[in-house]
Design a binder for these strands. Structure first.
Lengths: 256, 256
DNA sequence: GAGTGGTCTAGACCACAGA
DNA sequence: CTGTGGTCTAGACCACTCG
């Protein structure tokens, strides 16, 4: 491969393959082999390996030892933060959650698993909820979400035991309208929502569950629901691969 | 370096240095040298180089050819999307913008440059604003933002020429309360805001301006302001390094 | 056992910074 | 001219997949 305006060979290789994937020349599921590409492009295998690392970080391919490197590019799932929690959306949802609609919109089949337990919350969650961080002071509703059997999101919701104890909030099924409706049933309707968002490297555990490498990135969204009198009743920490999601927000400019 | 539960050497090296930086053992500005670390840790220089690549992606260090690798870790700047556009914030601001307050909150000195021109908007912007994409159909207000002389954000705002022509919206100074107040002066108060957010690799130009490598990531935020009668009057595209920013959103649960 | 990616080393050469 | 990172190659060895 010829030299080209200071752009290194592995980046040129990555650019070439990226373009091919986006144009549809390499369809999702196509298997590429490093050695073969190395020979056809006249470079060392390590150069191809490095190019694939770049493409992997962007979520375009995924290497499998012993098998080859698969093209995995998918358009992102759209998460509308505001609609998810609106009254109207809950009435519209017919018992199906927001996640369900988001995934179906792309033609995938959604699935999610829920595990409810009592746990000691992470320090930052304990601080927001104003509960002790050193006991089983919260109910944790851990959701694991999939699209066509691919894990796409982790969402761990924490509720103070003082609120959840003996209520539907500790049940394995959230019921019609979702968990937010259960809060409303208890007279703890969430009227104000805050989300704090950052991007980071996944932990090894997250990377394993979400089938990511540590070169990829996740959104970490800390979502808090507040009642009208300013009480924080639920904190949910969402972790999702950045290459799989697009986030939408919407609000009134003069509400504050 | 001994083998350790399948975690590769370069990741172990990265973990070690990451911990040292976060604990404050390597202060911001410390210069590290690959060859020196390679010898002290008993590995090849390329292994250290690869470890630094990981740390660079996280924004912890930045390599400088000919000089060494500098520790650059900084706590993130907090951007509160909702407050930026509220009436209250504009009145509080004393002529200083939201960016100004966000940067000062971290002890840095903010600075920004503004260039106003007429341009053909990007296709996605043209579509939102419902203007032609093939002429100088929009006024572009290009802001370049710095914290202590480090570039931290690019924000390109687009306004239909039909709205901006001959108004303060085409001026080089946005005036008290910022550009949003000028819209209000024209009877085009923005009452609804939408933001669509994703994460991607910076373009070579963005990487150069923001002093990033292509291993790092940027947020791309497409912000739209709408009037009460549903007219889109301004689209602003923000590009900012993910390792430098934390994003906060806030809204009423039942506004929709 | 053969195929394929993940990683490490050793050596080389280039580009850029700075004296 | 020297120091330092960026990249490329060649070879090696390991881990995992699949027949």
């Amino acid at each position: 491969m010829s030299t080209n305006r200071g752009r290194s060979e592995y980046r040129q290789v990555a650019d070439t393959i990226r373009t091919a994937i986006k144009q549809g020349d390499y369809a999702r599921g196509t298997v590429l082999r490093e050695e073969e590409l190395a020979q056809s492009m006249g470079v060392d295998r390590s150069t191809i390996n490095r190019a694939f690392r770049v493409l992997t970080a962007d979520g375009l391919v995924r290497a499998r030892r012993g098998k080859g490197t698969l093209v995995t590019f998918t358009p992102p799932i759209q998460r509308n933060a505001t609609l998810r929690y609106s009254q109207a959306a809950r009435e519209r949802a017919d018992g199906r959650g927001a996640f369900d609609a988001e995934v179906r919109a792309l033609g995938f089949t959604p699935r999610s698993e829920l595990t409810v337990s009592r746990v000691t919350p992470p320090a930052n969650v304990a601080e927001i909820l104003n509960v002790a961080a050193d006991e089983n002071s919260t109910v944790k509703r851990a959701r694991r979400m999939y699209a066509d059997d691919t894990a796409v999101q982790l969402a761990d919701s924490y509720i103070p035991v003082a609120i959840a104890e003996g209520t539907a909030l500790e049940a394995d099924e959230s019921g019609p309208g979702g968990i937010v409706s259960r809060f409303a049933d208890l007279g703890l309707a969430q009227t104000r929502i805050t989300e704090s968002l950052n991007v980071r490297t996944p932990t090894p555990e997250e990377a394993s569950f979400l089938d990511m490498t540590e070169d990829q990135r996740v959104y970490e969204i800390t979502h808090t629901g507040w009642t009208a009198d300013g009480q924080p009743v639920e904190v949910c920490v969402h972790v999702m691969p950045t290459h799989l999601w697009k986030l939408d927000y919407e609000w009134s400019a003069d509400q504050n």
